[in-house]
Design a protein around this nucleic acid. Sequence first.
DNA 1: CTGAAAGCGCTTACAG
DNA 2: CTGAAAGCGCTTACAG
Lengths: 341, 341
Amino acid sequence: MNLTLKDIAQALGISVATVSKALKGYKDVSPSTRKKVLEYAKKVQFKPNTQAAFLRTKQTKLIGLILPKIDHDFFAQILKGILNQAEETDYKIIILCSDESYENERKHIQDLLQLNADGIFISIAKSTNKFDHLVEAQKSRTSLIIFDRYVKILPSHRIIIDDKKAAFRATEHLIQNGCDKIAYFRGDLISQISIDRFLGYKKALDHYKVPFNRDLVLTCNENTLEEGKSKAAQLLEKKLPINGVFAVEDLLALGAMEEFKKEGYKIPKDIACMGFSNWNLADLVSPSLSSVEQNGFLMGKKVFQLFIKDQKNKAEEKAFTTEIIPTHLVIRESTDFGIKT
Amino acid sequence: MNLTLKDIAQALGISVATVSKALKGYKDVSPSTRKKVLEYAKKVQFKPNTQAAFLRTKQTKLIGLILPKIDHDFFAQILKGILNQAEETDYKIIILCSDESYENERKHIQDLLQLNADGIFISIAKSTNKFDHLVEAQKSRTSLIIFDRYVKILPSHRIIIDDKKAAFRATEHLIQNGCDKIAYFRGDLISQISIDRFLGYKKALDHYKVPFNRDLVLTCNENTLEEGKSKAAQLLEKKLPINGVFAVEDLLALGAMEEFKKEGYKIPKDIACMGFSNWNLADLVSPSLSSVEQNGFLMGKKVFQLFIKDQKNKAEEKAFTTEIIPTHLVIRESTDFGIKT
DNA sequence: CTGAAAGCGCTTACAG
DNA sequence: CTGAAAGCGCTTACAG
């Protein structure tokens, strides 16, 4: 076991209280005593016991991070960003995965509250349509910060992107390159970012007077390669004429490309394809996939920074902050009409 | 703030000690009292304070996980496996990243010991060649479990694969399909798994009487796509005749394939390519990449299970366990000579 | 400037 | 079967 304040106090022949104060930089300790304590503590590598300190300070220095998925490029980048910032502090990150389930999400929040986590960072599961657990967290002394997958009707700290605008730009790019029959592989019908992206797609069509065709909108729930393939196959089967596809996740777009290629379509000449999130593999496939870059690493850093700010503001009035992380289009072969493979 | 034992005791008109005992299932509490306590605790959703309990039990229910890299498919699978098991217990996982640095690794272990983590799970950074920090962890009351990247000279709990055998099988597959000039993109010169894989490659050459050519062995330190490309370019530049490449990570193999394709070589006909780890993108590229599948999810589960076993064995003699996770070859287009694209 | 004392919320050996 | 008491390691208001 580690040494305690008591051990140090005994070794130096002073009181526990004085040792504690010297270590914490209180001013009412004589310079000589302070020096003595600091030097001794350093020599024996004294490590204060976090759990004991908590009983008094109510700070655990623990933060819970709830991700909807683990093996997911974008969330991995966010995690990197959070850890990058956390390393410069003495906060530790507890990682949990909701696996897109409301029940898991709720359970994890309960656990984190029981653990007295100082903060909870969460991106909402797709299936979550009740928010009582989030409200409960907000009522507690923890700082709740929602990132990427947010909840429109729940006021909260948010670090997000402008999904509507990003989807608008992506659709616009397809239109400006001659696509006028753009299939849209949309996300689920519940989550806000899925709704926002659809609105962006729709707005671009309206803005450029491209007719909207309900049959070209396919709802995807898994966002896997397989789902992309099968949705593309559905489109082809119905013989719906299309010359572009915009999918709300890269894997869907990749699956669609594979299906189109298999059936003899040229990309981008016959069908241009656009993804979303710019996973690292978008650059590795052939043709390489155009996509919307969201800077996950930066988002993660901002989440942590907002947490620190919120901790400092604890005393003051509660006001929620929303920060928008900029996105941009990455144009690659799958929509590059200069190439026309 | 949450309710405490004291609150419950007052509400029910009994003592704190009795409440505690009833909650913990001690037998020396009358059934009626126990029932009363349990029901009330449930009603008010009593959540015992973990930090306070620690002061007595010395259990934090916290486990530190140190990964060399975050955005890495294999480690993500391991993390999934660990979380999968942890969810069924009340242990929480604190995630840290060494970023392949010994200094970071050392610092994280210090932090975790200070935090009194019940367990530390670690895969060693590439640059780590001192092990004092690991020895210190073993001396403490934490359970140290090393996975994948282990240290040969340090006895410890280990969940690993048989890297030598896996590399042997992969090389053998290339040889059996006619490759007799197999370039080897090896990993760093320090870590054990890198050494083991090299030995497996060498052993397969020896076994099948394929001459070993030192010039065909290239040492890679980054294991990125770019490094794969540049090493492949080096090989071509030197005009070394090759008809196979075995790389110790998929990204290296993918980079090499890109370079070879660019220079007009057919894969696998001119040069067969084999990776290691079977990242999900191995299946998405064209030609798809053959690789060695390591079951990261299973490895993660086993790590956690070994931890639980070790916690139970605390009283008994310390004996270290090593468990080998089986691997297998996944043959795809890049080494499928039936296809000969 | 220093230290005794109370207390954070829990657990458990002990007395009754 | 029940509860008073000590103690885990720290912090901090208070007295001197």
